[in-house]
Simulated scan of single mutants.
Amino acid sequence: MKIGDAKIEAGAVCFALQYRPGMADQGVSLQVVGEVDGEAKELLRFDCFDHEPHYHYDPNGKNIKYKMDKTTAGNPINWSIKTLKHRLPDMLECSGYGDIASRIDCDLVNEKLEQVKETARYMAVSQRRTVTHNRGEVVIEAGNLKFGLEFRELRNDRGLAIHVLSDVAGQEIELLAFDCFEVGPHYHYGPRNQDIRLYWDTVAIPDTLEWTLEQFTSGKLPAMLDRAGYPGVVAGLDEELIAEKLESEIVPKAYAMRAANVKN
């Protein structure tokens, strides 16, 4: 992987940082870099992602990978910094770079890691990828949820979009978004928060609007909202009312809007 542009020198090693805004996950990557055969090489990497944080020994060689357990480790950035402060020479040995490990100045490393931590924290906030959509042309209320429907015409794509909204801390927030597009259909968990974006395989799921509405009508909304990070909204759902609104208004309106925008 390319070495990050934000670099903090620490004697025998350099700490490089970059923000990686992936579709299904995102976060700060912290690389431990050293000189090997006259070239800068990635020796260790800590991927402090939102959902599946993990770290690598010798990422471009034997690439031994371990997942971080967020339940026990807590914040991935803090865990990575703490681990580097106490275990860096041993981890470099495990990666196969004992010569670099023997030249580590632990006092200097610990001093520089404070700067690394502040830089990583700043990146995690300032470079986070989120998405803000319109709320929809038609908004149908169902208890503490609102379903916003619109037909979106983009430069390179088009299709029906469904926004699942609710009021959180006095502000209307988009909790889920389903972009049932013709070319690149996808959906979002927590577009204003985590923005986990997943693309449909249209060979396996040729009608993405039908699939979306099936998730709603089959009772998957609570689990999806929980994954998006809104358990408080889930606790207040009126599932009977949602089912009624889906049958009488949301499903018919969604199909009607799509039909009205079919290109001949």
Rank of each mutant, 00 (worst) to 15 (best):
H56L: 14
E111C: 11
A223E: 13
G96Q: 08
K82L: 09
T130I: 15
L113S: 11
E118S: 14
H86G: 14
A142W: 08
S80M: 02
P222K: 00
E249R: 07
M257C: 05
G136H: 02
K146M: 15
G148H: 03
I77G: 00
Y55N: 10
A260T: 07
G159M: 03
E150C: 09
Y55A: 04
A16W: 08
G159L: 01
Q26P: 03
G96P: 02
G98T: 11
V36F: 08
N134H: 12
L88R: 10
V183M: 12
E239N: 09
V233R: 00
S248L: 08
L92G: 00
D5V: 09
P53C: 12
Q215T: 12
A169E: 11
N264D: 15
L17N: 09
A243D: 12
N63W: 02
G22W: 06
V109Q: 12
G232A: 06
K85I: 07
D167S: 14
H186K: 08
G219E: 02
A256L: 06
Q18N: 12
R45M: 11
I242E: 03
E93K: 15
E150P: 02
L175F: 07
G11D: 10
N193P: 08
V138N: 04
I8N: 01
P185T: 04
E9Q: 09
K220A: 14
V116W: 09
R227E: 01
F151A: 08
W211Y: 14
D167P: 08
K7S: 11
L88W: 07
E93I: 14
G136V: 01
V109P: 12
Y55T: 06
P59W: 05
E247S: 12
G34L: 08
A73K: 02
I8V: 10
D238S: 05
G96R: 02
R155E: 15
K245G: 00
V262M: 09
W200V: 05
P21A: 11
Q127Y: 07
G184D: 13
T119A: 14
